[in-house]
């Protein structure tokens, strides 16, 4: 037999390749970190700059402010007034209302669709439903916003007789359309990844298809479904274009879902381009951005913790 001569591998190329990949990873990490630092830094003057503090402080953003002495104090977002006021409450309420409607709309449709597609649909049907729903996420949000602004708003107003054409329900439903594919895809993956042996065991014990789904598959897939919902909520809070176009953009304090709203994200998008660089308004907008980042961060963290707890419970080990 002929002697084999093995070629020595180049240590140098291996070294360069490994370092190159590491650099890529760190660039991405650094970019994320730098963006956060920049946003927080631009918001900071609110806490120490005297000129800015004359106009706005944390307290002024939370407590009711009056336009002038003798006038009634209100929660209002009026950055361009002679006496600018920056109450966060109307924006917070607007963001919350749009997200709540979006989730109320998207959770039943996304999770329900995932259950149907993964458990009850024929193979053929599934091959139609899955790509169709996932295609929703490929639609640019400006197109969905346009649709909500022109078509959906008119339809909803004609059907339910809303006073304001553009309101949180209209924006929330359009927002829900972007959240559905997210919830659907993650839930569907979770449901189909439940081992078939569990379904077999339940069937062999005389359970019917519906019982198998509700008592075995669904509980086992719950962490995945919860993850989908949490990520969907994060998306709904951060989404900008749709709420900018379809919500009416009125920063008002109201509990009625039929009133117009304005969200954090839409406020930043619509005002940052015209704001005076370095002004109080400028810092406040960055403060909003920081808050938005913190919200989504906390939501994702809570989601993760819930997921880990659920997983532990489902997979044994108390």
């Amino acid at each position: 037999m002929k002697n084999l001569t093995f070629k020595k591998k180049s240590k140098f190329i291996e070294f360069i390749g490994e370092k190159f990949i590491a650099v890529n990873a760190f660039v991405a990490l650094a970019a994320v970190l730098l963006i956060f630092i920049f946003i927080f830094k631009e918001a900071l003057p609110i806490f120490y700059d005297e000129y800015i503090q004359e106009e706005v402080t944390i307290e002024k953003m939370i407590v009711k402010q009056a336009f002038a002495e003798g006038r009634e104090a209100k929660f209002s977002w009026q950055p361009n007034s002679d006496n600018p006021r920056y109450s966060l409450l109307p924006l917070f309420i607007g963001t919350l209302k749009a997200s709540i409607i979006a989730m109320l709309f998207a959770i039943p449709l996304g999770v329900g669709g995932a259950i149907y597609s993964s458990q009850f649909a024929s193979k053929r049907m599934r091959e139609i439903i899955k790509p169709a729903i996932e295609m929703l996420s490929g639609i640019p949000s400006v197109v969905l916003g346009f649709f909500a602004l022109i078509v959906l708003a008119t339809f909803l107003q004609n059907t339910f007789g809303f006073t304001y054409r553009l309101n949180s329900i209209n924006a929330g439903i359009a927002l829900g359309l972007t959240v559905i594919p997210l919830i659907f895809t993650i839930s569907e993956d979770a449901l189909t990844s439940v081992p078939g042996s569990l379904a077999d065991a339940a069937l062999a014990l005389g359970a019917n298809k519906w019982q198998v789904t509700s008592t075995v598959i669904l509980p086992a897939a719950l962490p995945g479904i919860a993850a989908g919902i949490v990520l969907g909520f994060g998306r709904a809070i951060g989404e900008t274009m749709i709420v900018l176009m379809a919500s009416g953009n009125a920063a008002i304090v109201s509990s009625a879902f039929t009133d117009s709203i304005r969200t954090f994200s839409a406020t930043i998008a619509s005002e940052l381009a015209e704001v005076v660089f370095g002004s109080a308004h400028y810092s406040v907008l960055f403060f909003l951005g920081s808050l938005l980042f913190l919200f989504t961060f906390i939501i994702n963290m809570t989601g993760d913790i819930v997921l880990i707890r659920l997983k532990e419970k489902l997979q044994g080990g108390k």
Partner: peptide
């Protein structure tokens, strides 16, 4: 079955499952 496939539930619930679904 060939591979043991208990449900991700308690021991009690595993045995009780067949009774409950019926």
């Amino acid at each position: 079955f060939q591979k043991s496939n208990p449900f991700p539930k308690s021991i009690f619930e595993n045995v009780a499952y067949g009774l409950k679904v019926n």
